[in-house]
C-alpha cells in the first residue's frame, strides 16, 4: 500500500478518532481533578483534625497506588462488589483521583507560602475563615501553583493512554491497532508521538500565557 494513501485513508482517520477520545478524557477529567485538588489542599491545610486526616489519607492512598492498578480495581474489581462503571467512567474516576491528589500537593505548598498575616488581616475585617481562604489566600496560592498544576495536566495528557487498558480506543490505542494490522509501527508511533508533543506544547504555551495574564504587578518574577 502506498504510504500517502495509507496515511490519508487509514492512519489519520483512525488517529483522529482516537484523539477525540483522548481529548474527551482530558477535558472531562481535568476540571474535576483541579477542583478536587483545591478541596483536598484546603481541607488538609485549614480543616479540623478529622478533615485534615481524611484528605491526607486519600492523597497518600492515591500516591501509593499505581494508576494502572487503580484503573483495574475500578473497572475489573468493583463489579464483584456490585458497582460497575462503563470503561469511560472508570477511567475518568481514576484520572480525576490521580490528578487531584498531585494537584493538591502543589496547591498546599502554595497555600502555605501565602503570608499568614493576610489571613489574620482578613479576619480582623470581619471575614469568616472560609471567606478569608476563598477571597484572600486561595487566589494568591493558585497563581503560585500554576506551574505545578500545568505539569500535572501534562501528565494527565500522557497517562490518559492507560485508558486503552480498559478497552477505550483513545489515541495510543488507535495507533496500536493500526500499527499491528498494517505492520507500520514506526510511522504510526512517530505520528502518535508527534500528536502528544503538539498537545503538550499547546498546554505549555497556554499555561505561560495564563501565568502572565494573572500575574500580580510587582510580585511575580518574570
Amino acid at each position: 500500500m502506498d504510504t500517502m494513501l495509507f496515511m490519508a485513508d487509514v492512519l489519520v482517520p483512525a488517529l483522529l478518532q482516537g484523539l477525540v477520545i483522548t481529548l474527551e478524557l482530558i477535558v472531562a477529567a481535568a476540571p474535576f481533578g483541579f477542583a478536587l485538588g483545591v478541596v483536598l489542599a484546603v481541607g488538609r491545610t485549614y480543616g479540623g483534625r478529622l478533615t485534615s486526616y481524611l484528605c491526607r489519607a486519600f492523597v497518600a492512598f492515591i500516591k501509593g497506588c499505581p494508576l494502572l492498578l487503580l484503573l483495574f480495581m475500578l473497572y475489573f474489581g468493583l463489579p464483584s462488589a456490585g458497582i460497575s462503571f462503563s470503561p469511560f467512567v472508570a477511567a475518568m474516576i481514576g484520572f480525576i483521583c490521580c490528578n487531584a491528589a498531585y494537584n493538591s500537593e502543589y496547591i498546599r505548598g502554595a497555600l502555605l507560602s501565602v503570608k499568614d498575616g493576610q489571613m489574620i488581616a482578613a479576619q480582623a475585617l470581619g471575614m469568616t475563615r472560609l471567606q478569608s481562604i476563598w477571597l484572600i489566600v486561595l487566589p494568591q496560592a493558585l497563581r503560585r501553583a500554576i506551574p505545578g498544576i500545568t505539569n500535572e495536566f501534562i501528565y494527565l495528557i500522557k497517562y490518559s493512554s492507560l485508558a486503552y487498558m480498559l478497552t477505550i480506543i483513545e489515541l495510543s490505542g488507535a495507533g496500536k491497532i493500526v500499527a499491528t494490522k498494517y505492520f507500520t509501527y514506526n510511522e504510526t508511533f512517530m505520528m502518535v508521538g508527534a500528536i502528544y508533543l503538539v498537545l503538550v506544547t499547546i498546554t505549555t504555551v497556554s499555561a505561560d500565557m495564563i501565568e502572565k495574564k494573572v500575574a500580580v504587578p510587582g510580585t511575580t518574577g518574570r
Binding site: V114, K115, G117, Q118, I120, A124, I136, Q140, V216, T219
Partner: peptide, 13 residues
C-alpha cells in the same frame, strides 16, 4: 474594631 498591623498585611493580589 479596625485593626492596623506592624507589617501592614495588605492583600498582595
Amino acid at each position: 474594631m479596625g485593626m492596623v498591623f506592624q507589617n501592614f498585611y495588605l492583600f498582595d493580589h
